[in-house]
């Protein structure tokens, strides 16, 4: 099937629209000049400047710790929730359960942030590293559940039945048959939760406290002041890091599918 000229133009335009801005940020992170529109030659000075920017490095560490912890928690609870929904067709409050699980997907982040902050205030918890982590866990759980649920929906229930028929206990059938089959989705869910947490500005801004400034919060503070080559460099690091992560993850899941 040959593609028409119109289709090729649409593709090129759409992809250029998506990638050009990002490419420019990456390119200008290697600009020797401090001016953002003038190319002053190749330089890695802004990356060196990044390394000595202690607040930014601190924020990056906070973000990584928050993302890792919240993604782990969200993966466990999200997977459980998806299993509960798929495996148990009727239990008290199943409708409410499904609503609570998937409604956060469409809730504006600003509402999620505000409501969680008010919860922490009501509970009189000090805001900081733990509240951000819990908040991120709360909003990413739904995404994990969505991904795992989709995989569970495709799963052939007779596999687990076959395991039971061959003498496995319910738990052992789950561990030896179902879990390996859904593990790519669980991994994908974890990755999604991780990047969502790493990316979040709004919810973190509401629920964070002193000493727990995340990387997006720090970057946001600097972006408001204008475009600088240093932010370009920080952005490039983040883009490359996340892209590598996505590539590794897709490789992992693909190998799983072939096996």
């Amino acid at each position: 099937m040959r593609m028409s000229r119109f289709n090729i133009v649409s593709l090129v335009f759409g992809i250029a629209f998506l990638y050009l801005p990002i490419l420019i940020v990456v390119t200008y992170s290697f600009n020797a000049s401090k001016l953002v529109t003038v190319w002053g030659g190749f330089s890695t000075q802004w990356y060196r400047a990044l390394l000595s920017n202690a607040p930014l490095i601190d924020a990056a560490w906070v973000s990584l710790r928050v993302a890792l912890a919240s993604a782990l928690g969200a993966t466990i609870i999200g997977t459980m929730a998806a299993l509960a929904l798929r495996r148990h067709r009727r239990f008290m409050g199943r409708g409410l359960f499904a609503f609570m699980l998937f409604a956060p997907l469409v809730l504006p982040e600003i509402m999620t942030g505000l409501s969680l902050l008010l919860l922490f205030v009501a509970l009189d918890w000090d805001r900081g590293y733990w509240t951000v982590t819990l908040a991120h866990m709360a909003f990413t759980t739904s995404f994990v559940a969505l991904v795992v649920d989709a995989r569970l929906a495709d799963l052939d229930p007779s596999c687990e039945e076959a395991a039971r028929d061959l003498g496995a206990t319910a738990f052992s059938a789950f561990r030896r048959v179902t879990l390996p089959m859904i593990s790519p989705a669980v991994a994908a869910g974890f990755l999604l939760a991780f990047t969502l947490s790493l990316d979040d500005l709004v919810i973190a801004s509401f629920t964070s406290g002193p000493g727990a400034t995340t990387l997006p919060m720090r970057l946001y503070g600097q972006m408001r002041l204008g475009v600088t080559p240093e932010i370009n460099a920080a952005s490039t690091v983040l883009i490359v890091g996340v892209t590598l992560l996505v590539i590794v993850a897709s490789r992992l899941t693909r190998r799983h599918r072939q096996a």
């Binding site: 801005p21 420019i24 475009v227 952005s235 996340v242 892209t243």
Partner: peptide, 29 residues
């Protein structure tokens, strides 16, 4: 092609918006 469209979704929202600032300011590219 579909992957090409989705990959930017994984890179930071904040950074993508920032990229537009760099492009669209009066003194931008």
């Amino acid at each position: 092609l579909l992957t090409l469209i989705v990959v930017p979704f994984w890179t930071s929202f904040l950074i993508r918006i920032y990229a537009w600032i760099a492009l669209s300011k009066p003194e931008g590219l």
